[in-house]
Amino acid sequence: MNRRTFLTQTSLLGAAALLPISSSVPAQHRKLGYQLFSVREDMAKDPLATLKALIKMGYQDFEVYGYEAEKNTIYGYTSAEFRKVLEDLNVTTTSGHFMFHPLLDKTDDELKRFVDQCITGATTMGMPYITWPWMAPEQRTLETFQRLPEKLNRIGEQINAAGLGFAYHNHDFEFIDYDGQTGYDIILRETDPALVKLQLDLYWVMHSSKLTPKELIQNAPGRYVMWHIKDMHKVSRDYTELGNGSIDYREVLPDPQVSGLEYYYLEQGGNFAHNPLQSAADSAAYFKAHLQGVF
C-alpha cells in the first residue's frame, strides 16, 4: 500500500467520528477565538469561572494548551470531561498547543506514541487541529531547522491519517537569518503543504520578519489556516492589548480567503495593563468595534 492510499483509507475510516477539515471556513462561521495561555493563571485557579468570564466578553472558541498526554487530562479534567464543559457552555475548542519540542531528540517510536496520545486528546475534545507551538531556546539553531521538516512531515502524516489537521506556530526565532535563509524559509520549503499547515502569529511577524503578513501569505496562499492576533507595545515592543499598541491591524491584516483562514485567536501572553482577564475584555471590545468586519 502506498502512502496516498494509506492516508485515504485511514482518513475515511475515521471520518464519521471526527470533525471535517475544510480548505476554508466561511466568514459568517468564524468565531471570536482566544488562546487560553493568555489567562493561564486564571485557568489554573478556576477554569470554569474563567471560561464563563471570557464568554461574557464575546469569545466563542478557544485554543487550549497544557494537555497532559500520559493522563489524557487538561485543566484538571479528562479530555472527555472538558469537552462536556465546553458543550454545556455552548462553545468550542478548534486547536490545541501540544508540547512536541521535547520529542525532537527522542526515538521515532516515542514520537509516534506521543502523537497518538495527542490525537486521542484532540479527537475527544472535538478539535480539528493539533498545533506545534514552541521550541526551547537551546533548540533554536540552524541544525534544528535542517532536521525539523522531516519530523513535521511525519507528524503531519500521522495526524492527517487520523482525520485531523496539523499546523506549525511561529515566534521570532524562525526569522533569524542564516546566511541568506531563515528557519521559516526551510520549514516552508521542505514541509509538505498538504500535511503541515501554518498558524501565523501576526505579532511575531511584525516584530521579527522582513516580510509582512500579507507577503508571507501571498508566497504560500491557502496554507495559513489559523492566525494569532495581538498588539505590540509602542515603546517596549512587548505584548499589549489590541488597540493599545503600534500594530494597525486595519492596515496589515491579510485577506482571510487568500490565507485559507479557518480559525483565529486573540492572544496576550503577558505585559497586562491591569490583569489578564481585563486585557482579554479590552482586546475583545477593540476587536468587535474595529476589526470584526474583516472576518
Rank of each mutant, 00 (worst) to 15 (best):
L13F: 09
A15V: 07
P20A: 05
K31Y: 03
L36D: 03
E41L: 08
D42V: 03
A44L: 05
D46Q: 04
P47K: 06
P47H: 12
L48H: 00
I55P: 02
G58L: 03
N72C: 08
T73V: 10
I74G: 00
F82V: 03
V91E: 10
S95L: 13
P102R: 08
D105T: 15
K106H: 12
D108Y: 03
D109S: 15
R113L: 11
A122Y: 03
M125L: 08
P128G: 07
P128A: 10
P128T: 11
E138T: 10
Q139S: 10
R140I: 01
R140C: 04
L142R: 15
L142H: 13
R147Y: 14
L148R: 10
K151N: 04
R154Y: 12
I155Q: 08
H169Y: 15
F173D: 11
E174W: 06
I176D: 04
I176L: 06
G180W: 09
G183K: 05
I186L: 14
E190S: 05
T191Y: 10
P193E: 07
L198R: 08
V205K: 03
H207R: 11
Y224C: 02
V225G: 05
M226F: 02
I229R: 09
H233W: 01
V235R: 10
T240Y: 01
S246I: 06
D248S: 07
R250L: 02
E251Y: 09
L253Q: 12
P254T: 01
P254V: 02
V258M: 09
Y265E: 05
Q268V: 09
G269I: 01
F272K: 08
F287L: 03
K288E: 07
L291Y: 11
G293Q: 14
